[in-house]
């Protein structure tokens, strides 16, 4: 039928235009290429960490010394991962950590050391090992330091330097610092020391309390600004508010960016956070609740509205048929 042919032509050109300006153009815009012009494919590794990205980056930079250093570091991590950790022994090692991770909300070298209550549940095991071996290398921000022990947690490699100790403390965290995590806890432990979320009234100091007096409120605001100044001094700029981030960046960007910020934003000061799959899912849930709270409602309502219009269209078609029946 002629009308269907015309419809097919219209659909074809509309879809072609859509494909060109959306999937194709966005792929071209965000494509990363190495210095020979070859495309660098950025993909998620399911939130596990073995240094593949870091080594590939160093290779692309053509820095042989760096490649060796990265390879050696991640090989070390692998060695430790193979050791059997003893959680009971780990508890004593963990005492080293709570000197800084003390919940006192005091800035240390740029940020407030996060609460570790669920660190065994939300972080990847290999990443935790890497972190204790050398936080700057683990976060893939070693390029910022002439000496990586200058990282705010960098001194840890002198206090906990024995491989078995590392395996023990990681085993301890995975056993005792795990359990059910809420999205809010995961997000607070992993991101809040740097990022505010104004839609959930969260700042770098955590939840904003309700104040009776304007004076207290202003005093709190000043404390927040002071904290943000410290973070800014540490990171170079203030990490953006994450309220709408879940809609501003696609799923793919978020996943790969959290796994390895350098891959998406070469040279960025945001360190890798080292979340495992579960940790990421929780963080995503939190950010969705803040920035895209209608997602559930959309998915629920969608089929009904579309169903209604399918029904409407069928009725309209029958009406049209009856109206046009005796015209030809």
């Amino acid at each position: 039928m002629r009308e269907l042919k015309i419809f097919a032509v219209v659909v074809f050109f509309s879809l072609l235009t859509y494909w060109l300006v959306e999937p194709y153009a966005h792929h071209q815009m965000h494509m990363k290429v190495d210095k020979d012009g070859k495309e660098i494919v950025i993909k998620s590794h399911g939130f596990t960490y073995d240094g593949t990205d870091d080594i590939a980056e160093a290779e692309r930079k053509g820095d042989a010394a760096l490649v060796t250093k990265k390879k050696a570091f991640w090989a070390d991590v692998k060695t430790v991962a193979a050791l059997k950790g003893n959680a009971a022994a780990g508890e004593t090692v963990f005492a080293n950590c709570i000197g800084c991770h003390n919940g006192a909300n005091i800035n240390m070298g740029g940020v407030i050391p996060p609460n570790l209550d669920h660190s065994g549940a939300i972080y990847d095991k290999n990443y935790l090992i890497a972190l204790i071996k050398d936080p700057a290398m683990a976060g893939n921000v070693d390029h910022k330091y002439a000496d990586t022990s200058l990282h705010p947690m960098g001194s840890i490699k002198f206090t906990v330097s024995d491989n078995q100790q590392i395996a023990d403390v990681v085993a301890y965290m995975q056993e005792k610092k795990a359990g059910e995590v809420t999205p809010k806890e995961a997000f607070t432990e992993a991101c809040v020391r740097c990022h505010a979320v104004r839609y959930t009234k969260t700042t770098q100091l955590g939840d904003t309390p309700k104040f009776k007096h304007k004076k207290d409120e202003l005093a709190h605001e000043i404390k927040v600004i002071e904290e943000q100044d410290l973070v800014k001094a540490y990171m170079g700029n203030l990490p953006p508010d994450l309220s709408m981030m879940i809609r501003a960046r696609g799923e793919h960007f978020m996943e790969t960016f959290i796994e390895n910020p350098q891959g998406q934003l070469a040279g960025t000061s945001m360190p890798r956070v080292g979340l495992n799959q579960e940790g990421y899912e929780k963080v995503k849930e939190y950010l969705t609740e803040a920035g895209d709270p209608s997602k559930k409602a959309r998915e629920q309502l969608g089929p009904w509205v579309i169903g209604f219009f399918v029904f409407f269209t069928i009725l309209a078609f029958l009406w049209k048929k009856s109206m046009w029946r005796d015209l030809h």
């Binding site: 309502l301 219009f309 409407f312 269209t313 309209a316 009406w319 049209k320 109206m323 046009w324």
Partner: peptide, 21 residues
């Protein structure tokens, strides 16, 4: 009009698919 309304129906299916998904 009966034909217009039918075409609008088809259009609204597309419209709301895009709105939701």
């Amino acid at each position: 009009l009966s034909k217009d309304v039918f075409v609008m129906g088809v259009y609204f299916i597309l419209f709301f698919y895009l709105v939701f998904y």
